[in-house]
Amino acid sequence: MYKNPILRVCTKILFAPIILFGLYVQFHGDYGPGGGFQAGVIVASAFILYSIVFGLNEGQKLLPPKVNLVLLAFGAFLYGAVGFITMLMGEPFLSYNVLGENYQAGQHLGILIIEFGVGLTVCNVMIALFNSFSGYQPNQGS
C-alpha cells in the first residue's frame, strides 16, 4: 500500500477506462483483434492495480473472494452450458447454429456467449492467483 498521492489519484482515474477498454476488447473481438482471453487479462489488471496501490484488503472489499470464486466457476459453467443447450435442441455439442433464427445469427450469439464465459473465467483466475500469492503467510503453514 502506497501513500503517494499521485499513484492513488492516477489509479482511481485509470480504473474505469481500463475496464471500459477490457469490455471493448471483449465485445469487439469478432471484428478486430481481441477476444475473451485478452479481455479477461485486461480487466483483471485493473483489479490487480487497485490491490497493489490500495492494499489487498481494499482490493478484496472491491471484489470479495467468495464472489471471485463463484464467478471463476460460472465462466467455465457458461461455456459448458451453451454446449448442452445446443445438445438439448437436437444438434451436436457446441454447434451454435440452432441458437438463432438462421445459421449466422446462431453462430454470432453462441460465439458472443462463450467468449464472455472465457473472459469471466480468465479474469477471475488471474485475480485469484494474485490474491492468493500476495495474501500468503508462509510461517503459519505446515
Binding site: V125, L129, S132, F133, Y136, P138, N139, G141, S142
Partner: peptide
C-alpha cells in the same frame, strides 16, 4: 496459469 501453479509449488517448497 501453469507457470503460476509451478510458482505456488516453489513457494510451498521454500516454506
Amino acid at each position: 496459469a501453469t507457470t503460476a501453479l509451478a510458482l505456488a509449488l516453489v513457494v510451498r517448497i521454500n516454506s
